[in-house]
Simulated scan of single mutants.
Amino acid sequence: MPVYNGERFISESIQSILNQSYTNFEVLVLDNGSTDKTQDILANFARLDNRIRIILESKPLGYGGEVASNVAARQANGLFIAKLDADDVATPDRLAKQVTFLLAHPDIFMVGSQLTLIDEAGNVTGSRAYPTDHDAIYNEFYLRFPMANPAVMYRNILQDDLYQIRFPHFNDYYSLFLLIRNGYRMHNLPEPLTAYRIHTANTVFTNLRAKWRSNMAIKESFVREFGYKASKTHQIKLVMITWAINLLPERFLTSIMNQARQVLKA
């Protein structure tokens, strides 16, 4: 769990892991140079539960927590590594269901889930659905990121970092595509096991135009470098989204972007 100035939600996120029905885990939290009360909150949790390990960085490592996740993962002792962002919430059976699935399916490298969407107060505002089987996941990679990054669990077998840093944003999207192209199989469980919190400080909802340019550059790399064949339907949807992002005032984009993704299934 990478965190930067996460005092508002970090306690709820960590507590959702401590409340898991599966209890054989360690929690590695990497603080990215927080200047609020995050470090105090983390220290208190670590005093109360020796399964919590805190890694402190003096300044933010950047790239949306992906570098921080790499640093933490290098210190992980477990057979599997699960991701959770510092403002999201895991259901009590998340780890149990994902561990059970990976043990039963040795050919699968990574397992995710569907998402429940929540607001700042934790109220459910919607859901986000993802394809479940490996082939369907691959077929949607050009349209969108078909794995929910804060909901994944993967095998601790990589010789290199999970996240390859190449683009200004969304290197998780690019990196998982590289893995799937290199033969690592993926699956999403059909139920929501993580609640994804949408709020004004979400990094994914800031600087939307610049981030969309990174998103499209990543998609273009799929086609140009790996020969990915995107469907006409997916290409048309992306043209529509690009048109809206370029046309609408930036201040309106955050409020409508998630609704647009729901409608377009992107």
Score class of each variant (00 low, 15 high):
residue 101 F to G: 07
residue 142 Y to W: 14
residue 166 R to Y: 10
residue 176 L to C: 11
residue 266 A to S: 13
residue 214 S to Y: 05
residue 51 R to N: 00
residue 3 V to E: 06
residue 8 R to I: 12
residue 69 S to I: 07
residue 221 S to C: 12
residue 165 I to F: 05
residue 231 S to A: 14
residue 138 Y to C: 15
residue 101 F to R: 01
residue 213 R to Q: 14
residue 266 A to T: 13
residue 155 R to K: 13
residue 252 F to S: 14
residue 65 G to R: 04
residue 253 L to N: 06
residue 12 E to Q: 14
residue 239 V to W: 10
residue 223 V to N: 07
residue 164 Q to R: 13
residue 5 N to S: 10
residue 7 E to T: 10
residue 200 T to I: 08
residue 59 K to D: 10
residue 223 V to F: 00
residue 168 P to G: 10
residue 227 G to M: 02
residue 248 L to R: 08
residue 80 F to G: 03
residue 64 G to H: 11
residue 82 A to W: 00
residue 209 R to P: 00
residue 133 D to W: 04
residue 74 R to S: 11
residue 151 A to Y: 03
residue 5 N to T: 09
residue 251 R to N: 12
residue 104 A to P: 06
residue 190 P to C: 10
residue 76 A to C: 14
residue 62 G to D: 09
residue 153 M to D: 07
residue 257 M to F: 10
residue 257 M to I: 10
residue 33 G to T: 02
residue 225 E to K: 13
residue 228 Y to S: 09
residue 83 K to W: 03
residue 196 Y to W: 13
residue 119 D to M: 02
residue 117 L to V: 01
residue 44 N to L: 14
residue 129 A to E: 13
residue 263 V to P: 04
residue 89 V to G: 05
residue 42 L to P: 11
residue 151 A to K: 03
residue 199 H to T: 00
residue 239 V to A: 12
residue 136 A to H: 12
residue 111 V to L: 07
residue 10 I to P: 08
residue 132 T to A: 12
residue 95 L to M: 09
residue 257 M to T: 12
residue 194 T to N: 03
residue 165 I to P: 09
residue 57 E to D: 11
residue 119 D to W: 00
residue 99 V to A: 05
residue 198 I to M: 09
residue 72 A to C: 00
residue 6 G to S: 10
residue 168 P to M: 02
residue 220 E to Q: 15
residue 259 Q to N: 14
residue 137 I to F: 09
residue 12 E to H: 05
residue 100 T to I: 01
residue 134 H to V: 04
residue 196 Y to D: 05
residue 115 L to K: 04
residue 89 V to M: 02
residue 198 I to Y: 11
residue 49 D to E: 06
residue 87 D to R: 03
residue 266 A to H: 01
residue 144 R to A: 04
residue 204 V to N: 08
residue 80 F to N: 01
residue 162 L to C: 03
residue 63 Y to E: 08
residue 23 T to R: 15
residue 217 A to C: 08
residue 20 Q to R: 05
residue 18 L to K: 06
residue 153 M to H: 05
residue 31 D to F: 01
residue 215 N to F: 01
residue 154 Y to D: 02
residue 87 D to T: 00
residue 235 Q to N: 06
residue 221 S to F: 07
residue 7 E to I: 06
residue 82 A to D: 07
residue 223 V to L: 05
residue 75 Q to C: 07
residue 266 A to K: 04
residue 174 Y to D: 09
residue 191 E to T: 15
residue 199 H to P: 01
residue 147 M to A: 04
residue 158 L to I: 10
residue 126 G to S: 05
